[in-house]
Structure formats: structure tokens, C-alpha cells
Design a protein around this nucleic acid. Structure first.
Lengths: 250, 250
DNA sequence: TCCTGATATTGGTCATACCAAAATCCGAAG
DNA sequence: CTTCGGATTTTGGTATGACCAATATCAGGA
């Protein structure tokens, strides 16, 4: 985030401030950290907007409830490799995809014309072929889901789903490669993709919706499992190394 | 996030500032928004920490390239031309709203905190009070549905629904006024709104989803009925008038 | 003991000033 | 005319001090 926010979180961790605990007044805290209140507040606003701290006008600033472990972990691990976890967006996105793509599959089954079916089958072939390159594979995956969105013949739906994929394009390849580390995942994914396509091509709308829902729930669940695992791994090897901060120039 | 950050993002959207574009100096921007630079900066820091804006000391503040919300906003952009398109497109939007808002209601029931509940109740009061002015009423209606989206605590969901409302804001007032021509519609709508709010406030997630679905199906059905009627009327009375589109400045 | 009102504390906002990095401008050298 | 280099202006980063409003705290009275 910023050096100051890390300092604040480190201070929270050092003093063992539990969720709900009140932290020093801004004026005091600013003096303690040797900065002006304005600067302190700019950092504080970031923490507030991230939900790590809640603020009550006239009352004080408090450690947000349920953010104990995060605050501690992150304070002990100043270098956060959660570039993709930035704000935990992917969970939000998956939640929406479950609804929208289920809808898209449903309507696609009802409205797909010959051209749509052709595209869908081509996309299915590509995604099931399986590419060694995660980047290529993720493209194929996106193309498959977009083919369904197209076939739904709902322009707004198509645009929104396209936007969501755009939103995730950075993390999809990475997630997908991680996903394939789990046993049998590739086969399961292929099977699910085929089930969705089959239902759509056969015009079985309800089956299509169900298949899409199952697929996305599986992906979401797998991703969640992976995240907790990597988090655990990070915790285990935490005090291993103290590598310098990476810088990204323009 | 915060009202100011939304204002800033609205300004970015209004001026069509592309990623990489430079936005006004802080002093100017602060004056434009009628706030002090300190406050402006506190909001700006939030946007910066979220990766929406990058700042170069001495250089200026810039819209971040390929930022998350940018992608969504851009995705909504191509739809603008459809806003004026003769019919058909609103059905696409309603189809999506049925899914997304049902989801939003469901998650809102599970995740709403006290502040969310307070907002929701206020919005419910406003929308049920009923305004003579269709414009005001449509605003209240949008605010109610946005309150639910906020309470879902899913940033992406909130952003998408917000985008959909933004997309429809011209036609909503019109549709709503037409809607109220049908008998008992106001009462039915109020009843539905209350049912949704009640389920959310009580934490009954499944009920909330069902209530939201019922509501939107009712609206969609009513609008469809109205359209067929007006279409019939139009066929009868040919090309009578060409009413101009009303636009409101931010 | 419990309420109540005055007082102190604290977050929210504003205005102003100064510094340093970057951008811009402008004149001299080629 | 172009180009280079330094002076000047612009702009983000930080600091200070002040005031307001919501909250918390405490003393005094019923």
C-alpha cells in the first residue's frame, strides 16, 4: 500500500490490538509516528476504505471486526504478493459470474442459431484440446464462455460478461495454471464444459443453466481452496526471507 | 466508498477521461468540487491505493491504465447508443437485472450491517412515500435498489448494477410514469418493495431473492404489456410526435 | 442510584504555507 | 533553424493551526 499504512498496521500488530479495539487519537498517533495529522489521515483513509479500520466521528478509530488475522499477517509480512488478490475482487466477480453465465447458458439454449452453435462447438474444441501455455488456455476458456454469452442474444449480457472477463484477464491465466495443479482438474473442467455445450446445443435450457452453475461453483470452490492453501504455505515460510521490495517504474 | 470518491469517478466518466489521461491539478479539482485540497487528497489517496489513479510527484494525477473499474465502465460505454434505440434493449437489461438484483438481495440479507439496514430503510421510506414528479420517483426507486446492491458488499455487483441504472436513467422515469397508469400498480410496487426490504432486514436470504425476483418479473411483465399497448396505439396513430430526449447535467 | 447538562475529547474539514519533483519556457550556442 | 541547458512555473507531498460537530466523560442534582 504505502509505507505509512504498513507502519500503522505494524503498530496495531505490535500492540496486539484486537478487532474492535480502539487505537490512539489521530493527533497522538500522528505525533507518535512523527508525521502530520493530514498525512496520518490520508493513510488512515486508505485503511478505512479497505475496511481494516472503522471510524466513529467524535468517538475514535477502531480496528475493524474480523480483520484481526489479516492485519497481523500483513504486518508480519510487509511484502504482499497479493497483486491479483487486490481487494479480493475475484470472489466478487465469481459471485456475479455464477448468476450471469447461468442466465447466459439458459438463454443460449433457447435462442442459439446455427452460427452460434458452430462457434460454440469450435470454442469447445479449442478449450478441451488443452494448451500447454496457460495464457493460450485462458484465452480459449474465455472464448468458450463468450461464445455462450453471444448465443444468449442479449447484447447487454454479452457486454457485461465481456467486461468481467476483461476485469479478470490478469488473474485468469495464473488461477488456471494453479487450478491444474489439483488432481483431475483438467478432466473435470473438460467434462463440465462439454456438459454445458451439450445442453445448449440440445436446447435443454434448464440443464444448461444447471451445468453452468455447477461449473462455476466448482471453479470458485477450487480457487478458494487454492487460496487458503497458498495462504497457509505463506504463513509457514513466513520468516524465511527478507527480500527487498520490488519497484515498478513507469 | 465515499461520496467524494464517487464524485471524482463520476467526473472522470463524465469527461470521458481515458486510461492514461491526466486529470486536473488537485488545487483546481478541489475548487471545482467545492472542497478543500486536504479532503480532496484524502479521497484521491483512496483511489490511488485502489489502483484507479496513479500519481506522479510534480507531474500530475492520471487515470490508471487498465484499472478494474475502468474496464467495467468501458464495457458499459458501447451500450450507450442502445439507450435511444427503439425498444428491445430494455428487455435485455431487465433480463440481467432479474439475476443480479436477486443475487444482490440474497447477499444483502446475509451481509448487511447496521448502516446498510439504515440506508435501506430510509430508501424504502422515500420510494414508498411516492413523489408526484416521475423524475424524483425514479431517483428514489434507483436509490432503493442501489441500497440493496451496496448492502450486498460486493463491489463488482454494485458497480454493474450502478452501470445498468445509469444506462436506463433516461427511460426509467418514462417507464415508471407509464407503469403508474395501470390500475393498482403503485400499491403493488410498494408492497413488493416492502417485501424485499423486510426479507433483507430479517436476514431471510432466500425470501429476499424470491421477493426481488417477483418484483422484477412484475415490472418486466408490466412494461411488456405497456409496450404492446403503445405499439398498438402507435400503429393506429402513425407518426404523431417526435419527443426530444431529456438530459440532466451532473 | 440514576438522570442531566456542562465540559473535554476526537474525528471531519478547511485554509495556508513551504518543499521537491516535474514540466515548461526561454535564451544562447551550434 | 534547431538544440541544449538553466531559470521559472506548475504540481504533488507534507506540515501547521484552526474550527466545527459528534461523541464521550464527568460532575452535580433529583
Amino acid at each position: 500500500m504505502s509505507p505509512l499504512t504498513d507502519q500503522i498496521r505494524a503498530l496495531i500488530a505490535a500492540r496486539q490490538l484486537a478487532p474492535g479495539a480502539r487505537l490512539p487519537p489521530e493527533r497522538t498517533l500522528a505525533a507518535e509516528l512523527g508525521v502530520s495529522r493530514s498525512r496520518l489521515r490520508e493513510a488512515m483513509q486508505q485503511l478505512i476504505s479497505r475496511g481494516l479500520i472503522v471510524s466513529r466521528r467524535g468517538g475514535g478509530n477502531f480496528v475493524a471486526p474480523g480483520s484481526a488475522e489479516r492485519a497481523l499477517e500483513q504486518a508480519m509480512q510487509p511484502l504482499q504478493p497479493l497483486a491479483q488478490a487486490e481487494g479480493g475482487y475475484w470472489q466478487d466477480v465469481m459471485e456475479i459470474r455464477k448468476s450471469l453465465e447461468a442466465d447466459a447458458a439458459y438463454h443460449a439454449a433457447l435462442r442459439a442459431d446455427d452460427r452460434d452453435r458452430q462457434h460454440l462447438q469450435a470454442a469447445l474444441g479449442a478449450v478441451c484440446a488443452g494448451a500447454a501455455d496457460p495464457e493460450t488456455q485462458s484465452r480459449a476458456d474465455a472464448a468458450f464462455h463468450m461464445a455462450i454469452a453471444e448465443a444468449s442474444h442479449n447484447l447487454v449480457l454479452r457486454q457485461v460478461i465481456s467486461g468481467l472477463f476483461d476485469l479478470m484477464r490478469v488473474s485468469i491465466a495464473e488461477s488456471l495454471s494453479k487450478l491444474h495443479l489439483l488432481p483431475d482438474t483438467a478432466e473435470k473442467l473438460n467434462h463440465q464444459h462439454q456438459a454445458i455445450a451439450a445442453a445448449i446445443l440440445a436446447g435443454r435450457a434448464d440443464d444448461a443453466r444447471q451445468a453452468a452453475t455447477d461449473h462455476l461453483c466448482f471453479v470458485e470452490d477450487s480457487l478458494r481452496r487454492i487460496e487458503t492453501e497458498t495462504a497457509r504455505a505463506r504463513r509457514a515460510g513466513a520468516l524465511r526471507n527478507k527480500l527487498p521490495q520490488g519497484e515498478l517504474p513507469a
